[in-house]
């Protein structure tokens, strides 16, 4: 199932995120055109948010990028981080070139997903849930437990390692899901409405935690959300997806400093306003902006 040479290329760069370039992607599902045209780019280690109407193809786009489904047409290109390559050994540097992958069936272990429902195994405790990706990859028991414990410690979840998912609040469950997504040290983190089901206070706290984790791990992150504020406060660039079939609009660069009070700054509000305007464009206007 896996493309071995592709794996090798992706695996060669031990640190840093993957660059992703979605070029002219169109996708049909069961004869219905879900994505009309998607052009999205995120640089290595970047943070991109995709916002848009529900049912507008955001999640489908994320699944296409993650290789869970193959696009009907267009291509998705992955780029290994180039500036980091200088620090790597010579042999690794050779591989630090552009890697293209046919998205069908190839799920590189460098890509991690985080879903809204958390998707924890209810019969496993927190530690065993976090260790799951490593377990399925064949990592020895002690090694994967150590890695999971490290991740839990980093997220201040160590006290909960023996708890079962049913004993956790919704927010805690999402944090465990995040720990699981990050335990493999992914180079690309795909987040599908991760905090969509949480209350506002928890959501703000987890947004901040996610941002911190993204900074620490230097992974590339793509977040699908319906919250404009969440998108603008987390991402470096926001792409709006509109219409049926969905089309991506040109990215909006978020150049607001992300300090504690940034959510109330005039700049932040103005950027939210810009995203909002794109989200409320009439259908005929969408076609004009998108091309």
């Amino acid at each position: 199932m896996r493309n071995a040479s592709h794996e090798a290329k992706l695996g060669a760069t031990a640190q840093g995120g993957l660059g992703v370039h979605v070029r002219g992607v169109r996708h049909n599902f069961n004869g219905v055109n879900v994505i009309g045209h998607a052009d999205v780019q995120v640089k290595s280690g970047g943070f991109l948010a995709i916002v848009g109407d529900s049912g507008g193809g955001k999640t489908t786009l994320l699944r296409l990028i993650g290789g869970l489904i193959a696009p009907s047409s267009g291509e998705i290109i992955f780029t290994a981080p180039s500036q980091r390559a200088a620090n790597e050994s010579a042999s690794e540097r050779m591989h630090a070139t552009t890697a293209q992958r046919p998205a069908v069936g190839t799920r590189a272990s460098d890509i991690s997903f985080c879903f809204q429902e958390g998707r924890l195994l209810p019969w496993r405790n927190v530690l065993e849930n976090v260790a799951l990706p490593l377990e399925l990859r064949g990592t020895p028991a002690q090694e994967r437990r150590d890695a999971a414990r490290d991740m839990l410690a980093k997220m201040q979840l160590s006290d909960s390692e023996n708890k079962m998912p049913a004993q956790l609040s919704g927010g805690m469950r999402m944090r465990v899901a995040m720990a699981r997504a990050l335990v493999t040290r992914p180079k690309l983190l795909l987040l599908d409405e991760p905090f969509g089901a949480l209350d506002e206070v928890t959501r703000l706290a987890l947004d901040e935690e996610l941002r911190q984790l993204w900074l620490d791990t230097a992974t590339t992150a793509i977040l699908v959300t319906h919250s404009i504020q969440e998108a603008v406060s987390l991402a470096q660039e926001v792409v709006v997806m509109r219409g049926k079939p969905g089309r991506t609009l040109p990215a909006i660069v978020i150049d607001v400093p992300k300090d504690a009070a940034h959510r109330t700054s005039m700049q932040f509000v103005a950027l939210c306003e810009r995203v909002y305007q794109q989200m409320t464009l009439q259908t005929h206007e969408v076609a004009g902006v998108a091309r």
Partner: peptide
Amino acid sequence: DPGLRELFRIYNANRFTRWWK
């Protein structure tokens, strides 16, 4: 749960692993 099935698919679990775990 189809969501959990997809999770195992993402992690490239084979048939036996999927059944057993």
